[in-house]
Structure formats: structure tokens, C-alpha cells
Design a protein around this nucleic acid. Sequence first.
DNA 1: GCAAAAGTGTTCGTTATACACCCATGA
DNA 2: TCATGGGTGTATAACGAACACTTTTGC
Lengths: 229, 229
Amino acid sequence: MGRIEYKQYDRFLLAVDCIIFGFDGSGLKALLVKRGLEPEAGKWSLMGGFAQQNESIDDAAARILLNLTGLDKIYMEQLYCFGDLDRDPGGRVVSIAYFALIKIDASDNDKLEEHQAKWIDLKKLPPLVFDHKRMIKLAKERLQQKVSNHPVGFELLPHKFTLQQLQALYEAIFERSFDKRNFTRKILSLGILQRLDEKEKASSKKGAFYYVFDKKKYKQLESEGIQMI
Amino acid sequence: MGRIEYKQYDRFLLAVDCIIFGFDGSGLKALLVKRGLEPEAGKWSLMGGFAQQNESIDDAAARILLNLTGLDKIYMEQLYCFGDLDRDPGGRVVSIAYFALIKIDASDNDKLEEHQAKWIDLKKLPPLVFDHKRMIKLAKERLQQKVSNHPVGFELLPHKFTLQQLQALYEAIFERSFDKRNFTRKILSLGILQRLDEKEKASSKKGAFYYVFDKKKYKQLESEGIQMI
DNA sequence: GCAAAAGTGTTCGTTATACACCCATGA
DNA sequence: TCATGGGTGTATAACGAACACTTTTGC
């Protein structure tokens, strides 16, 4: 069985664009770069690149993320394939968008500078090339949906975090506020948080307990379908 | 701004594969064809084809669906992009899967025969080429999710239908049974069904009222986020 | 001792679930 | 008149939403 059967069909450039989310304690942020390629070079853009024949699309996405952030083994999920005729004025390019969740201070600053990358609050997005704003919008909706049913939000927080940080994250993702008592009760009742003896003392005199996410307990629940919010 | 900037990058064959769902009153069905192309010609397969440069990916999906069923303006949604290296032994092909919901008796039978297409119960799937079984599995999960929040199930039923038909559809999609009284109350409370004066008399002596889906009422609710099940 | 954030319970309304009988009709 | 599927109500449990005060401690 050869690899020649399909030669008469059209071939496409495949871009992979990454919506990289981060959280710094206040707003939800996306990591944007200054586009290095014509057309539209110098404009704000998602980090992207072209897929190569010798890698899967998932691998291409991981490569592009690694290239920008120096990070590996990151939570990443395919978002959508954008295939409109005229989405890229530089040519017929079909783009497969991925979204990633990273700890905002874990990435390699030298690499970020290389690409003139910046964390930009989702509420203050500058004009973006092509259909990248639409991609971010869709990614945010998917993140909301995802985080409602799966504890992926922890990917955006430091290893240990306070309940207030967690709540601030949810409030940033959903752009609404939650009642502190209800939120705490709900989250703790899931049984996937483990309280440490250690307290965060920087932001209050009393100090707030740190928690860590207990992946083992979560895995038990995952199959049953968890309701986070 | 020319269309030459990207010429040094790899190009890909893009397949579009359609998971076409139908419902015949008992089980949930998928429309499968005998593959007409090497490799694996003659094996059961999803209906698919290659995308062309002069059409959007969405248009390619619509073209492929039309080609098989003769149907147009069908509920269709992009499912996922499958991009593993070795998913198609005939070559490096990235496939974008779409799922469609059609009324099972609306399609053009001549066209179905041309492609040796058959409606096959999802619980009795034969071996399928490539990763098509995985595509169907994912499509079913997405359908369940979709139908929980949006009244797309109506796309699978005749224009007028009884509550029992609707319940049977939901039971087929979710592979579980619902309590008749609770189901009826829930569905009617949404206010998107309109009862006709007409009854279906074939399957009972008393006869069951026909309902139609009131799209206008639904559109009002849609933005708020509806909870179907 | 006071300012500032942490932590904690109760009430109420809504929603989901479980469950069984009468109705209308054609044969 | 009886067999068949159609149609309907109620009681209980679970969950989500609203709401305010006490605790700790560094200054």
C-alpha cells in the first residue's frame, strides 16, 4: 500500500495558533506576540506556526508552545479548525487553534522577549491579525465550559494557592463574582483540595491557608462527571 | 500583498469526514458508506472527501453531505480535527470531522445507493476504516452534550412528532430511560413545543397529540442558556 | 484597640427524582 | 368489555442562592 493514491487532490498550508491563558491574580490574560512574518508583520497576534509533515498536529501545537514559552507537558486542548477562504490575506491557510493553560510566571522570559510576547488582559485586547480575536473569544467560552466540569483551573494557579486566589480565578474566567461562603463550601465539598498547614501571610494579617490540588482524588471522580460550578 | 509569502512550508491533504446521525424511532443511527477509494476500498467508512482550495472547510463539509444525501441547509457542526501522523495508511491526511443531524427519511435514496450507504445502529457498528470509529464515539459524546443545552434533537425528528417519539429519541441519544411524567413536564415547561390539534393514531387507539417545535420561542431562550435535560 | 482579611451556618426557594392511576378508544 | 398506549399530580430530597458576623493578628 503506497502513499501515492491521493496525489490529485489539493494541498493546504496548515497553521497552528495557540491561545495561551494565564492568570496573575487579577485578570485573565492571553499571551500575545508581535507577528514576525508578512503579511501583517509587527501586529499583535497569537503565537502560531505552520505544521510540518513529520509531526502530528498535536505535536505541532506543543512545539509552538515550547518554542515560545520553554514549557513542556502543558495542559493543551484543540479548540477549533478555522477554514474560511479569506481568513489569511497571505494565502489559503487553514488554522487549527489550540488553547493552553499555563502558570503565568513559569515561562522563560528570554524566549518571551525574543518573540516580543506580552501577557495582555482579555478585557483590553488590542487589534489582532486575521481572525485571532474570534479565536480568543471562542477559547474563552470553551475555557468557561471546561472549567465548569473539570478542575483545569488549577493549571493556571501556582502549585499552592489560597481559596481567595482560586475564587479570584473563577471570577476572572466567568467575569462575575461568587459568594465567598458558597464558593468555599462548593469547592471543598468536591474533596479534591488538600489544605496545607502553611499560610499565605503577605496579603493579610491573619493569613490564609494554602491548598494544593489532590489529583489522585480527582481522578476517582472524573469518570462520574464532576460539577465544579 | 501577494500570496507567495508562505511557499516554503509543508502542505497537507485535508479530508472532511461527516458523521451523519439519524433516528428511526428506535435506535440512534449513523449513515455509513462503502469506501470507494484505495486504500481500504470496500470497507465501511464515514462519508468523506477532500477539501478543495476554492471552498471553505465548512463548505466542503456541506458539499460532501449534499453529495451523499441530496440534502442542503442541514444542521451541521465541526467536531474535531484529527491530525495524527499515521491515521490514514494511504498518506498524510489531516481530517476535519463534522457531524450532521438529518431526518432519516428525507435523504435521496438513489444517492444513498450510489454510495452503498446504509443507516447503521450505533450499537451495532461494523469495523470501520482508519480512526472513524473514534470519530463516531466523539461525535456521540458531543451530541449528548449539545442536546443537553440546545434543542437540536428536533433536527432528527419529523416536523411533527409525539412526546413519546421525542422521549424515545432522548433515550436513544443518552442510552438511558427517562420517567415519562418528568420528561413530559420538563420538556413542556420550556415552552418551545406547540401542540397541534392533530393526533397520531397509528400506534395507539387513543392517539397521541402531535407537537411542533416553536423556533421563535426557542430563539428567545437561546441566549440565556437553556437546560434541556 | 483597631483595621483588614479570613473563616464559617442557616434559611429558603427551586429543581430533580421517584412513583401509580385513570382515560380514551378500537377491536 | 378489555387491552393498549396516552396522559397526568404529588411528596421528598438535593442543590443553589442569599445573607452577616466572629476570628486572628500585625500595626
